[in-house]
Design a protein around this nucleic acid. Structure first.
Lengths: 152, 152
DNA sequence: CCGGTATCAACAATGATTGTTGAAAAACAA
DNA sequence: TTGTTTTTCAACAATCATTGTTGATACCGG
């Protein structure tokens, strides 16, 4: 994702208008590596702008995704997560306890599908989701404690 | 997934009761490789039993998943999909046009996470989703036609 | 500064899934 | 078989994330 200033320009030049709300969302996403949901972005933006609506957040996230400035992901946490890291190709680590999501920056060149196993699909991309426990949950989960199901 | 007869036994021995509806769901899932959603299972079962409720289907699918007889998957199609193939470890092919899901039975032994890239996660499993076009959609999609978004 | 258009935010609607409930059916024991 | 207990059935309403609608307001280009 580009800087808030560049995004402002990009929005203008793509025929979109600039509002204080949108710029606030740009700032919140800037450098954010937590893969926030729309709800989470709304909560973060609300600290600065108490009256912003969740709908506005969804709209702007949609616009950013359409412009290729963020990636929207579904990793089975029940909510779409947004990733401003569009630079390097990567996969994702998902905590099965707290549902935090982090980037795993690594190429996996060996994802060749064995001859005949593709069932005739014309495969364009592959996403890997690694599931496990994040550092925080390793500490608090001494043996017991149920996982959060993949889909509530 | 085991045979409907074995499932009947399994349900009984796990303290669950057997109903005509449940057995009908067992039969519909038997050997089904299309990764149906709850809604789809309901439609299939309804051919035989017009009055079965969607709730009953959800309940039974939940029970089967709890017993490890089917796997519930979220591959970003907006609905949970159910996979009776619990035998061999596998990944999934997802059509980005019609959202059909098929198994890709192949091990990928080279999913080692590079030193230091795991951000401290204790990784337990990895799922790969291959996205592309299924054979049917390759035929009907001669150049144009929009993809169905990953999450409606 | 003004007109046209897009955005804002409150509200209601959607779609997948889950909770609740009274009636009916299964299981188990006698 | 028959009674008793317990579970399931299916209709209904609720939930959660997300999207549609709408009147009022704010941006933009000229």
């Amino acid at each position: 994702m580009r800087t808030p200033e560049e995004l402002t320009e990009l929005f203008r030049s793509s025929g979109r208008k600039i509002t204080a709300q949108r710029q606030c969302i740009f700032r919140v996403l800037q450098g954010n590596e937590t893969h926030p949901s729309a709800e989470t972005v709304h909560a973060m933006v609300s600290v600065e702008m108490e009256t912003i609506s969740l709908k506005t957040v969804y709209q702007t996230l949609h616009d950013l995704a359409e412009l290729g400035e963020i990636i929207s992901l579904d990793v089975g946490t029940g909510m779409t997560r947004f990733d401003p890291n569009t630079g390097d190709p990567h996969h994702h680590l998902v905590c099965r306890k707290c549902r935090s999501v982090r980037d795993l920056v690594a190429g996996f060149p060996d994802l060749q599908i064995p001859e005949g196993a593709d069932l005739g699909f014309e495969v364009g991309s592959a996403e890997i989701v690694f599931r496990g426990l994040c550092p925080d949950c390793q500490l608090s989960a001494q043996g017991q404690g149920a996982d959060i199901p993949v889909r509530a």
